[in-house]
Every structure is written in C-alpha cells, then in structure tokens.
C-alpha cells in the first residue's frame, strides 16, 4: 500500500490515513511529496484548537465534543499531543483513555502524537497531519495540546478557533495565561464548573478580558470608569465594535456533558464571525505565510547541518572557540559565507 497511498486516503481508507500521518511524523522518505499532493484537497474542515493546563479536562471535553458533532452527522478528526521524554524520546500518550464516548466509531479518527523533542518540527507535523485529516474529508478537526509554552501556542495557532480551558481555583494559572494564551483564545472554557471557586475564576477571567479590551473593569476603583453601561470603556479607535470578537466565557462540566452544546454554539458563532468579517481569509493567508517561514527555517537549518558535517562537524570549531582563537559569531559568519555569496551573485 505504498504507491497509491493518497488515492486510498482520498477513497476513505482509515489505514491509509493512519499510515500517511505516520509517514508525516517519521518524516519518512517521500513524505514531502505526500503532503504536497494533499494540499489541493484541503480547506473544507473547521480546525479547532483546545488547550489548557494538565488536568483541566481537555481530553474529556474533546471526547464529548466529538460525540456531539457525531450526533449532528459530522465526522471528526482529533490530534492529541502529549510531551515526550527529552532523554529517551519515549512517551506515554494517555489522551485516548478519555475517548469513552466514541467507542468503535471509526468516523471519529483519534490520533495521539508526541512532541518528539523537535521544536519547530512539531507544529509542522501537526499542520501536515491536519491536512491529511482535512483531505480525508473530516468536517471538524480538533487539536488538543497542553498549553505550556511557545511551542504549544504555535500549534494551536494552526487552528481557526482556539478554546482555552481554565479549571476553577487556578488564580495563578489565570495570571500565567496573560503571557500569551490569553491573546490566542477565542473562547474560554471554565471546566469543572461544579467545583468551588468556579464563579471566582469566571469573574477573574471577565476582569482580565475587560482590561485587555482597553477598559477598566467596573469592579475596580470608585473613580474613573465613567464609560459605557456594561462596565468598561470601548476604545474609540480601531475596528468598529461589532467587527471585533470578544471571547465568551463558557462554563462546562465535561465529564457529565454539561455545557458542551454551549461550547459548540460559540465555536459555530466564531466560525460565522470569521467568515463574515473576512478574518477567515486573512487568517488563512497568515497561516500559510507562517507555514512557509517555518518550513524554510527548518530546511535551511537542515542544509546548514549538512554543510557543518562536510566541514568536519562543530567540534573543531568549538575547540577553537574555547581556546579563544575564534568567537562564535565568526564561526557563524564563516559557515554562512558561501550562502551569502551565492545570494549576492543572484542579485547581480
């Protein structure tokens, strides 16, 4: 089943889809051609990113979301990403255990991926795996990952809509969110809303969003805040208010399925907003640009590694740097010189 893998994938064979993703993950010989061929068949799926701290309930929510989409007659692909050991490369990928609502339903294609230690590589592999699911014909594709750092943020950025899970009582986590995840969230999901502290978390999130929108929350101070009735001032400049998307906060109890329909509704609203405001096209443009940049970076790095090997490896340079014979910048210049020369010649 090697030659016509793409044909089999397009014909709906699960095994071919699974094998395609494996080739993508392994960067097996010929995987680039594979992904190139997939490209023209993509663009029909809604891609949703779900992120949040470990134990926030991502897998459980994703399971319930998948089941709800299935009830609507839609097909679903899920990519769940777990960290791997930086030492052995091994990993236990446990998200599948929570997929209890979609037992034996092959129309939910669930795939676990590990971070495999490479930085840029993971977002490339994820993007490519999404393409495979999209070309296969999945209506909804959900990417699930722990929102721990830049790497994960890069991954969920490949989604049209991003949901961030915030468990109750995570005051400090909410603070942490400010660093970057806040900016990428299109909706916040306060999961385990039946626990104590859920109201408070919702409140904290609301305040934070109001600050972000450039206003002052009504709950802060006695003075100022003379703005609009809803408690914060809308900035006068910028997009007209109705054009802007304000991330809603949805409360869920994922393991009981409560609030899952609300999440789906907000996701649909956001999708509509993206289409109406023209953001969808803009997003797509930016995503492709980002994808090309990442690919270029990795490819150039690959070329350089080969060049370094040809020059006898980095060790010799490192030795000379240690003995102060040469400095790291000079090494970089020296190795890059042929490339720079080549580019100069092209300009002429």
């Amino acid at each position: 089943m090697s030659g016509n893998l793409i044909d089999e994938l397009l014909a709906g064979k699960h095994r071919a889809l699974a094998r395609t993703i494996t080739k993508i993950e392994n960067r097996q010989a010929g995987y680039r051609e594979l992904v190139s061929q997939l490209h023209e068949h993509t663009g029909d799926a809604d891609v949703i990113g779900i992120t949040g701290s470990p134990g926030a309930g991502k897998s459980t929510l994703v399971d319930k979301m998948a089941a709800a989409y299935r009830e609507q007659g839609l097909t679903v692909g899920v990519i769940a990403i777990d960290p791997s050991s930086p030492f052995t490369g091994g990993a236990v990928l446990g998200d599948r255990i929570r997929m209890g609502s979609n037992v034996g339903d092959m129309e939910v294609f669930f795939r676990s991926m590990s971070a495999r230690g490479t930085l840029g590589g993971l977002s490339t592999a994820t993007t490519d795996a999404v393409k495979a699911l999209d070309a296969f014909g999945k209506d909804k594709i959900i990417i699930e990952t722990v929102g721990a750092g830049q790497n994960e943020i890069d991954i969920v950025k490949t989604a049209d809509t991003v949901g961030v899970l915030v468990p109750p009582g995570s005051g400090d986590d909410v603070q942490m969110l400010k660093a970057g995840i806040l900016e990428i969230a299109d909706l916040f999901i306060v999961n385990k809303a039946d626990l104590d502290g859920a109201d408070r978390t919702v409140q904290e999130l609301k305040e934070m969003l109001e600050y972000r929108d450039g206003g002052v929350p009504a709950t802060v101070g006695h003075h100022g805040a003379a703005g609009s009735g809803d408690g914060f001032e809308q900035p006068e400049s910028g997009d007209p208010p109705e054009q802007r998307w304000h991330p809603p906060i949805v409360e869920t109890v994922a393991n009981k399925g409560e609030g899952v329909d609300d999440v789906l509704e907000v996701l649909a609203d956001h999708r509509e907003h993206l289409a109406d405001s023209g953001e969808l096209a803009e997003q797509e443009r930016m995503r492709y640009a980002e994808e090309i940049r990442t690919l270029l970076q990795e490819d150039v790095r690959g070329l350089l590694e080969q060049e370094i090997d040809r020059q006898g490896g980095l060790d010799a340079y490192v030795g000379r740097v240690r003995s102060k014979e040469i400095d790291p910048y000079a090494v970089s210049d020296e190795l890059l010189e042929p490339i720079a020369e080549c580019l100069e010649q092209r300009e002429e």
């Binding site: 050991s85 052995t88 091994g90 990993a91 236990v92 990928l93 446990g94 599948r96 255990i97 590990s114």
Partner: peptide, 14 residues
C-alpha cells in the same frame, strides 16, 4: 513504563 523508558511511544488503552 518500561516501553516508554526504552524510547517507545506508548498508547495505553485503559
């Protein structure tokens, strides 16, 4: 766990 430590990717079914 042993498979993980051997560098394999392990999916546990539950």
């Amino acid at each position: 766990r042993a498979f993980r430590d051997a560098g394999f990717e392990v999916i546990y079914s539950g």
